[in-house]
Design a protein around this nucleic acid. Structure first.
Lengths: 267, 267
DNA sequence: TGACATACGGACCAGATTGTACATTGACGG
DNA sequence: CCGTCAATGTACAATCTGGTCCGTATGTCA
């Protein structure tokens, strides 16, 4: 390569960091070309290489406070919003960095890569809904009332967390590849199924629920009805001019969904 | 620009199309830089500009067949798959080009930009499902039977077209921004609502349907239940180990969904 | 107080990706 | 045949973007 290469740099030209000059090189002998790194250029051209290094803009330079936990959570919160809005490929690390109080460097310091950050965001989001469900107590009531309460909790949570809904949609577009790597999530989700099974068993014993529809079916049905309203509200609104997030519609649908599930479960 | 610019080209250098040489330029006076176009370089440097032109690799050079319509449709089909699998930002124009029988150039020739291509793909996909629905005749039967048939048609179509489902999810992540630009789509979708209204009206007249749930509610419910099974099958499978696309589950759910809607509508 | 590990900032690199410049080739009317 | 224009192929160019280099600051423990 060396002998096939010739370089030329302007008079008074310094090839270096933040200089006003830009240099270019020519190759002979093949179709490929490439610009040189500064270090290569330095060696090849024997240029005075002085990195000017900015003066730290003295004025508005607040004292740095080390706070690893806050930094980490700041990154996660900002990233959740970014990934939920733009997807994994659409999300921009630079944009996350700009919105944070810290720098892009820290994303890589704490999470290693964009993909790893996405995975962490996903895990945190799933943990959110499941622990929220787990915290609501509803054992006392009748099976019918317990089920209605469970439905309403799901409805309310999904209404209140469109970011989570988006993340689930996005993850499905990825064939749940990243979710599959988060083993912890699975055990969290078993809980809600166990709970549903419990309610269903009680209802069947009392003769108020049929037995050819199992807990997973019911969970799917509840999820489907609640999820769609949030996930697809934009296309629905564009196509049919009905705003699914308006209070009136929300109240109506909340009752309707409960009723649909309960009616279906009647023997 | 002219006076701030100095150029240099190698001895015996021809700056031109497919030449072995590459030229570089230096700017003075500001931080920006840019390489020159060939044509600019030609003018500025007074270089002998002779485009060498590749010899057409004689051997495997099949005769070109002009076929604009086929080319266009080839692009659209390939792009549909790509966008459905990767989303708008995740899709790669180069990857589409590679899968096609034609070149990337043609995408820009016919569609202008990646985004415009996406918009066309979206319109075509929506047109697909609505015309498919419009083609099924189901006026003869009783309201209950007509509704059941409509549900099953929707169910079957969405099962058979996961690409369409993905595109809808993707479009919702974009807040339906691109769908909103496709005015034609809206009128297509009104048709199915009109049809539902018709069935509901007949059913109410016969006293078999309640009247506090309207066509849009019913459409949402049907869509939600059918859509979720396809859209969220991956996360569902990972979390609960139930394959929603298996024939057994499909049959079960198809019946269950019809029943859920019909039971809800009963007075 | 000073050494060491952890936390941090910002320029900048390298490769990926969209889009374009510029050429040739095919089809078709005259 | 020949001019013209739509259709097509190839090699770039411009830019965007994930990720890293290298240097500095902060805290803490002996």
């Amino acid at each position: 390569m060396g002998e096939n290469l010739r370089t030329s740099v302007w008079d008074e030209g310094r090839v270096g960091y933040r200089t006003n000059r830009v240099y270019f090189v020519l190759f002979k002998g093949d179709l490929n070309y490439s610009s040189l790194r500064r270090s290569e250029a330095k060696a090849l051209c024997n240029i005075d290489y002085r990195a000017p290094m900015k003066k730290p803009s003295s004025a508005r330079r607040t004292k740095r406070r080390n706070n690893p936990d806050a930094t980490k959570q700041d990154i996660l919160n900002t990233a959740t919003e970014e990934f939920a809005n733009y997807g994994l490929s659409g999300a921009r690390v630079d944009r996350i960095a700009k919105k944070m109080r810290t720098s892009k460097r820290m994303i890589y310091y704490y999470f290693g890569s964009k993909e790893a950050l996405y995975r962490t965001v996903l895990e945190q989001a799933y943990a959110g809904i499941r622990t929220s469900e787990a915290e609501t107590r509803l054992d006392s009531a009748s099976p019918t009332e317990a089920l209605r309460q469970l439905i309403e909790v799901t409805f309310d949570y999904e209404e209140a967390h469109p970011d989570f809904i988006n993340l689930v949609s996005i993850e499905n577009l990825h064939h749940a590849r990243y979710l599959a790597k988060a083993a912890s999530i699975r055990s969290l989700n078993i809980v809600i199924i166990k709970r549903l099974e419990d309610i269903l068993a009680r209802g069947r014993a009392e003769g108020v629920f049929r037995s050819d529809i199992d807990a997973l079916d019911v969970h799917m049905m509840i999820s489907a009805l609640c999820f769609f309203r949030v996930a697809n509200r934009h296309t629905f609104n564009v196509l049919f001019s009905r705003d699914l997030s308006s209070p009136r519609v929300r109240t109506h649908h909340k009752r309707m969904i409960s009723e649909a599930v309960l009616r279906l479960l009647a023997p």
